[in-house]
Write a protein that binds this DNA or RNA. Structure first.
Length: 465
DNA sequence: AAAAAAT
């Protein structure tokens, strides 16, 4: 008779949160020891059975915030797809599936990624096996539904990751069709770092009396991120400025955004000629090329990845020190998501936006829509002589970054922001009057307007009664 | 106007 090793009964808590022992084990193996604020809020809410709209900054742990309660609710003895997570890009679907797989490993939960650009048969086989959780992009998910190779009739959890993107015009019809196949009772969760007013009505269509978790104002700044703006004077080449950024000591790994696939390719070619290890990621490349590029970036084999907004949302790349907006993002939301590829989970990061004279007006539009924060440049700021050299050459504020990899904060605790927010107009405004003494900032004018204050972490039902 | 997402 074999002696079974019974694991000691400990680690049944994730910080203050009680968690399933197998999940506690998985979390420990993943290096997480206590929940981030969004996890502290989202996990109990999802456990309670309520729908959730969760807003929290980029890199603050949203994936585990829905992943943990879903994994622990999966009945592994039932061979049914019990949870569906939808993402806007294939790479994000893959990344989320990897994370959920790690969370569910010790629980016997089977997670299957379902997205286009790769063979159908392997996915069909995986789905025919014991798939408990499906993470996918809408096109391929719908394809499986019409072929009858995916059955969502027993699905009890639906998550729209990057929810504002999934509900916008490009995706909404596909999401509607897919959710039409989820015929049983279900819990719906929407998560994002941005949530523009326009998507509120769409969100209401897909959720019932949701718990609204606003750990951070949509678009809120990150304390560990330094946002810089480099004015490139007329006639000057942005590529030269980018070159200067890349060769600077503090730049380990950079993600550079361009607005079109063609421009991304062109810049990558230029950088290659200049001797940089570079790859491109955009939607006109084959899935094999895309995966190779992202894999090389994650493995640290590249200096720089040039991408379109395909890489703007969700991707978590360890060691990414710099995000460069070579071309301006098209919206304030995209600005927030792009720069949020760095400075994740308490790590430091630098985001540099290259600004040509013709970009100025558009940049001002973007900045006007962002919650102001100490350290975040405001539209009023005037470009000054010598600003380029200073911005490129300046050392990072908290320079504790070692050569290769950024340290993950191993206490699992993203820095907590005590700033309060006031709701004004259609958006959220950062109100710089903290609970303590006033920080040396000039962004606090809203504090004296008598606007109502809402608690920093608000938990109110969507519709006020 | 562009990018993404099914083929």
């Amino acid at each position: 008779m074999t002696t079974q090793t019974i694991p000691p009964v400990r680690d049944l808590r994730f910080g203050e949160l009680p968690v399933d022992a197998r999940i506690a084990g998985a979390l420990k193996a993943m290096g997480y020891t206590s929940p981030t604020p969004i996890q502290e809020e989202a996990i109990p809410s999802l456990r309670s059975g309520r729908d959730v709209i969760g807003l929290a900054r980029t890199g603050s742990g949203k994936t585990a915030g829905f992943g943990i309660p879903i994994i622990e609710a999966i009945r592994t003895n039932e061979r049914r797809v019990q949870a569906l997570i939808q993402t806007p890009t294939r790479e994000l679907a893959s990344q989320v599936a990897t994370m959920l797989n790690a969370l569910g490993r010790q629980s016997g939960v089977r997670v299957v990624a379902v997205y286009g650009g790769v063979g159908m048969q392997a996915q069909i086989n995986a789905l025919r096996g014991n798939a408990h959780v499906v993470v996918g992009t809408p096109g391929r998910v719908f394809d499986h539904l019409t072929r009858g190779t995916l059955d969502l009739r027993q699905t009890r959890f639906v998550v729209l990751d990057e929810a504002d993107r999934m509900l916008d015009v490009g995706f909404a019809p596909a999401i509607d069709k897919i959710l039409g196949h989820v015929t049983g009772p279900r819990q719906t969760a929407l998560f994002s770092a941005t949530f523009p007013g326009e998507v509120e009505s769409l969100a209401a269509r897909h959720t019932k009396d949701p718990v609204r978790i606003a750990v951070d104002a949509p678009g809120a700044a990150l304390e560990t991120l330094e946002e810089r703006f480099v004015r490139v004077v007329a006639g000057n080449d942005k590529t030269d400025t980018l070159h200067d950024i890349l060769i600077h000591d503090e730049c380990n790994l950079a993600l550079v955004f361009r607005r079109t696939t063609h421009k991304a390719d062109k810049l990558a070619l230029d950088l290659e000629r200049r001797g940089f290890k570079v790859a491109t990621l955009h939607g006109r490349r084959s899935q094999a090329q895309r995966e190779k590029a992202l894999g090389a970036l994650r493995a640290g084999h590249l200096k720089v990845l040039v991408a379109t907004d395909i890489a703007a949302r969700g991707l978590d790349i360890t060691g990414l020190t710099h995000v460069v907006n070579f071309d301006l993002p098209d919206t304030a939301e995209n600005y927030t998501h792009r720069i949020g590829r760095t400075a994740r989970m308490g790590a430091n990061g630098i985001a540099i936006t290259l600004v040509a004279p013709e970009d100025e007006a558009e940049l001002r539009d973007i900045q006007r829509k962002l919650p102001p924060a100490p350290g975040r440049e405001t539209p009023a700021a005037e470009p000054r002589r010598g600003a380029i050299q200073r911005a490129v050459g300046r050392q990072s504020r908290n320079d504790d970054r070692p050569g290769q990899r950024q340290p993950r904060r191993n206490d699992g605790q993203a820095p907590r922001d005590r700033t309060r927010f006031s709701e004004q107009g259609n958006g959220w405004r950062r109100d710089a009057r903290p609970s303590g003494p006033r920080a040396g900032s000039d962004h606090g004018s809203a504090a004296s307007t008598g606007a109502p204050y809402y608690p920093f972490r608000s938990r109110s039902a969507g519709a006020r009664g």
